[in-house]
Design a protein around this nucleic acid. Structure first.
Length: 495
DNA sequence: TCAGGAT
């Protein structure tokens, strides 16, 4: 594949719009982490090639509507946007183009240290912030700045003088809700807007508290649903509703029921509420479903699946004769080089495997921490904090952290187990795979992924993943040879 | 042998 950073911005079936901006990397801003200044126009820009206009599959826009209004867009973009209706949008090349308050701009420049909008931000922010406020389904690469899109959207649309919940953001895990809250607090530092976290809390009873007066609420589905049903969280003034990791939030085996319930309760009371659905992944099934969930005149932004895997993250597979060998690879190869690398996340499929691997590695005397949902919340919080503070080097995790978790120093991801679909174990979970490898290479950084394969099924899953993304994964010749791993890590740019 | 949130 030539280069995922390149593409044409062209809604079907129209002709290409005019290029208005010089090419730049898609990952010119990180997803959830504000700490790093944006590096804009990169040296890689010369290698962009132009892709043909592509159809957005699953488009469900009313045929009677004029659907081909589109943004003036940088021609080098790997996203396809389709807008619906008469509203014209102009890509925002500067944050100043967005009519943001001076307080919000100050947060963007001073606190976040952003310079200019990333690709996904340039395209979606005008859609989010232009009246009439239409629903939006937006897909963009891992680490490309999605969080900023909806956080900025929420902060910008909230009236700071009205002390009532006006924006709601729903996330699949407590960790992600907390991370998003932190971004919002930082970006909104000068706005005076008050946020609140809505996640389960053993210490504070929801029954004893008063109604929420915070203007932005970020949380997990069950808690938000509960607060709403207990009339602690009023929907009257909510005008923007965000689903982070929206494909998972609306998937059949995800949080679909809770999410729909919340959405309907809000829309019943606040019918003009704008709904934003963000994720790096939308499989065809979910894409079709979500486009029927939002209002018919919604806008869409999508990326082809072949272009979703990050070019900056080098993927490898390692054939291991048995489970024991997988542990040895982690022990002798990963820890061997680990000191010279950034941080590492080892993904396992089950809590049991997480505990097993943790016991094995600590038994060898290695320092490693493990996070999974069965731990107490305070332990989860501590482990995440230690990892984010750089106090721990290697973190074992279930898919709890597969999505959204942003830690820039992670440049190595180990798939100790490959993700597969619960209801059909011979099918890989392509979306989880993509989210996992997206934990490395945040903000366009270099990274490496090692997939440890031992059973026949692993090989089958791996080849299906390769086919799905149209990308061959390089094989490490021998699981026992330190040199092979060294070569791989050098090739990935990590040594 | 699902992991996640919440009950």
């Amino acid at each position: 594949m030539a280069d995922t950073t390149s593409a044409t911005f062209a809604p079907p079936p129209a002709t290409n719009p005019t290029a208005v901006e010089p090419p730049k990397r898609w990952a010119d801003e990180e997803d959830e982490a504000p700490e790093q200044p944006i590096s804009t126009a990169s040296a890689a820009s010369s290698s962009y090639d132009k892709l043909a206009a592509e159809l957005v599959e699953g488009l469900k826009v009313d045929e009677e509507e004029k659907i081909n209004q589109y943004l003036e867009e940088p021609e080098e973009s790997n996203i396809t946007a389709v807008t619906s209706g008469d509203t014209p949008y102009t890509s925002a090349s500067l944050f100043e183009d967005l009519n943001l308050s001076p307080e919000l701009l100050k947060g963007i420049y001073v606190e976040m240290k952003f310079e200019k909008p990333s690709k996904i931000q340039a395209v979606t922010l005008p859609m989010i912030l232009t009246s009439p406020y239409k629903d939006l389904i937006a897909q963009a690469h891992n680490g490309s700045g999605k969080t900023t899109c909806f956080v900025l959207g929420m902060l910008s649309r909230v009236d700071p003088k009205l002390m009532a919940p006006q924006a709601l953001c729903i996330c699949p895990t407590r960790e992600l809700a907390m991370q998003n809250l932190e971004v919002l607090q930082k970006m909104g530092k000068y706005t005076g807007i008050i946020p609140e976290l809505a996640v389960p809390n053993e210490k504070i009873s929801v029954y004893k508290r008063g109604p929420v007066s915070a203007q932005v609420v970020i949380g997990t589905p069950g808690t938000i649903k509960k607060w709403m049903s207990l009339k602690k969280l009023g929907a009257s003034y909510i005008k923007i509703l965000v689903f982070d990791e929206a494909d998972h939030m609306l998937a059949e085996d995800g949080f679909k029921d809770d999410s729909l319930r919340i959405m309907k309760d809000i829309e019943r009371i606040s019918s003009h509420c704008q709904v934003l659905l963000f994720s790096a992944t939308f499989n065809e099934t979910v894409k079709n479903f979500v486009s029927r969930v939002v209002k018919p005149d919604h806008n869409q932004v999508f990326v082809k699946k072949e272009e979703l895997s990050l070019e900056s993250v080098k993927q490898y597979k390692v054939n291991c004769p048995d489970e024991r060998a997988k542990i040895m690879v982690v022990k002798d190869k990963i820890f061997e080089f680990g000191e010279n690398l950034g941080q590492t996340i080892i993904f396992v499929r089950t809590k049991v495997n997480a505990s097993m691997l943790h016991t094995e590695l600590t038994g060898f005397g290695y320092e490693v921490t493990t996070i999974q949902g069965a731990l107490k919340q305070e332990d989860r919080d501590r482990i995440v904090k230690e990892f984010k503070d750089g106090l721990t080097q290697v973190l074992i995790s279930t898919d709890l952290l597969a999505r959204g978790f942003d830690q820039q120093q992670v440049n190595l991801v180990i798939n100790f187990d490959l993700p597969f679909k619960h209801n059909s174990p011979s099918e890989p979970d392509y979306e989880v795979y993509l989210h996992r490898i997206g934990r490395a290479g945040r903000f366009g950084r270099k990274g490496a992924v090692f997939n440890l394969l031992c059973h026949d099924r692993d090989h089958m899953l791996m080849s299906k993943i390769e086919n799905h993304f149209g990308k061959q994964v390089t094989e490490v010749s021998s699981w026992q040879n330190v040199e092979d791993f060294k070569v791989a890590l050098k090739e990935a740019g990590l040594l």
